[in-house]
Design a binder for these strands. Structure first.
Lengths: 153, 153
DNA sequence: GATCAATGGTTGATGTGTCAAAGATTTAGT
DNA sequence: ACTAAATCTTTGACACATCAACCATTGATC
């Protein structure tokens, strides 16, 4: 009977569970990061990636790869973050196509504060709400989903 | 030693697993939905919610609630989708503040096609890559995260 | 029944993302 | 060495989200 198509298929619901739970947690994390540190999640991610890199420095394209976004997105993100004084751009002498993004001292200070805040947010919103077993199960499943299909064809 | 702050805390990594796995799957789903049906995920979500509703119809604000976005977002989304002919707006006589969004026949047809495509995408990108046990574990965990904190204070 | 708060929707400003095109520079191939 | 391909970044056009302000309308209070 094609009169009632499969708009209520259980798989939609099941996957919707993942989507809603994920979005709920991410939204809560974004809210507290915003109110406590005045940082959006993309800004925090940039600071964190740079904070983990030697010299607090990354190429624009490497930053894009780590963030999982296009280089165009990073160009504008760094425009805004550098206007706020947390990062600076600098040219590369060996390859004059590349631009380095580097944390400023203000950026390092901001990251130190924000990382602590974010860790406690993570504890409250994620780790504190699941058992260790659940966290492991989720991590393992997501790790399996992480690499795209067809890499070994 | 404050020289090396906790930018590499394991919790960042663990949660990053969830973020990356989730984004990977969602991106794959969006790509195939786009290439096979020429629908973005927000458009598909709108069609699906309307397709499940009596008369294929919902108030703007109810649609916003189901999608988990603001009413402003829905206003513009329906602007675009109705320009494509998949939904129509219609005024409400009982309460002249409300606008109904209703699937057109073209919208119903599109949804029927897209729902089938999306279900098979879901099988390939999500259900096919995890065991039943893993899917259950993820769904259970995400369901627990779904309701915001502080609802029972 | 006049006022005032709550509700439903739209709009303007802005942040964040995409894609595709363009620019500059480097690397490879003959 | 010179042309051609690949790489890095930026830019323009646009999709999609937020917030805050605003307008209309409804409902509740006095």
């Amino acid at each position: 009977m094609p009169g009632t198509p499969s708009f209520d298929d259980e798989r939609f619901t099941q996957f919707g569970m993942l989507v809603e739970g994920y979005q709920q947690v991410v939204r809560a994390l974004e809210d507290t990061l915003k109110s406590d540190c005045d940082l959006s999640m993309p800004w925090f991610e940039v600071l964190l990636r740079l904070g983990r890199s030697p010299e607090y420095t990354l190429m624009m394209s490497e930053l894009a790869a780590q963030l999982g976004v296009t280089s165009g997105a990073v160009t504008r993100l760094i425009d805004r973050i550098s206007a706020a004084g947390y990062v600076s751009r600098q040219a590369c002498d060996e390859d004059r196509r590349v631009q380095w993004a580097k944390l400023t001292p203000a950026g390092i200070a901001k990251l130190e504060q924000a990382a602590a805040v974010h860790l406690s947010d993570l504890d409250r919103e994620y780790f504190g709400r699941l058992s260790d077993r659940e966290v492991s199960a989720v991590s393992k499943a997501m790790d399996e989903l992480r690499q795209p299909l067809g890499t070994g064809l």
